[in-house]
Design a protein around this nucleic acid. Structure first.
Lengths: 111, 111
DNA sequence: CTGATACTTAAGTAAACGATTAAGTGTACA
DNA sequence: TGTACACTTAATCGTTTACTTAAGTATCAG
């Protein structure tokens, strides 16, 4: 269940244009045009990237008049961060166990 | 430059099979067959996923005799985690500034 | 030497991606 | 009213992905 959410989130983060959009939105809301302005691509391309970001939950938007305002939602970002952190912790935990183990056998691996 | 590295890392993390492989490797080294065993796909498919993981630097492997042993490298993971953390921090920093601002204008937005 | 094991390589395929251009919709404003 | 603006939709196109099967290579065990 959470698997698919991580799929969408990491996939959304795997593109430099989409990360640039998130970097912009982390500094505050922006319209679609404002998001598109620094990017070297057509507006429809930007909108497609935006759809990927919205599908992942990283970004939400609402339209008022003729301008759509986008804002970042850090919750999806935290989910991804937590997954990474858990893997890193598990890796470190294993190193600790390994160290404790080696202390008992000062002159080489027991097995 | 670091952009391409994040591309590769997030792309590597965007697939459930590859995340499963990393989860396995966070608990210790494993052979290709061991990585493949819980996955519902052919061995060549697993090897292709492994190539993606190695290209991102998340995993390294070496062959001894006929068995290739894979181990996780947490450095690439940290790089991704740092990018996420920076975005979250910037978002939070902006919330703080916004709060300070609103304190000066208790009855609505100044602009 | 023979056979089993552990990959490895190659080739092919269906679907997803990332972009484009062209045309359309709905606001805002003079 | 009419024109510029801010998207929006649709159709298309070349590339990359995520597999597959089939066949090949290199150990190791007896």
């Amino acid at each position: 269940m959470a698997v698919a959410a991580l799929d969408l989130t990491f996939h959304a983060l795997a593109d430099p244009a989409r990360r640039a959009m998130i970097e912009r939105l982390s500094r505050g809301p922006a319209s679609v045009s404002e998001l598109a302005q620094p990017l070297a691509m057509s507006l429809p391309a930007v909108v497609q990237h935006l759809a990927v970001l919205e599908a992942s939950g990283l970004v939400a938007s609402q339209k008022v008049g003729r301008v759509r305002t986008c804002r970042m939602d850090p919750a999806a970002l935290s989910l991804a961060e937590q997954w990474i952190d858990q893997r890193r912790r598990e890796w470190e935990r294993r190193l600790c166990r390994l160290g404790e183990h080696l202390k008992q056998f000062p002159d080489g691996e027991p097995t």
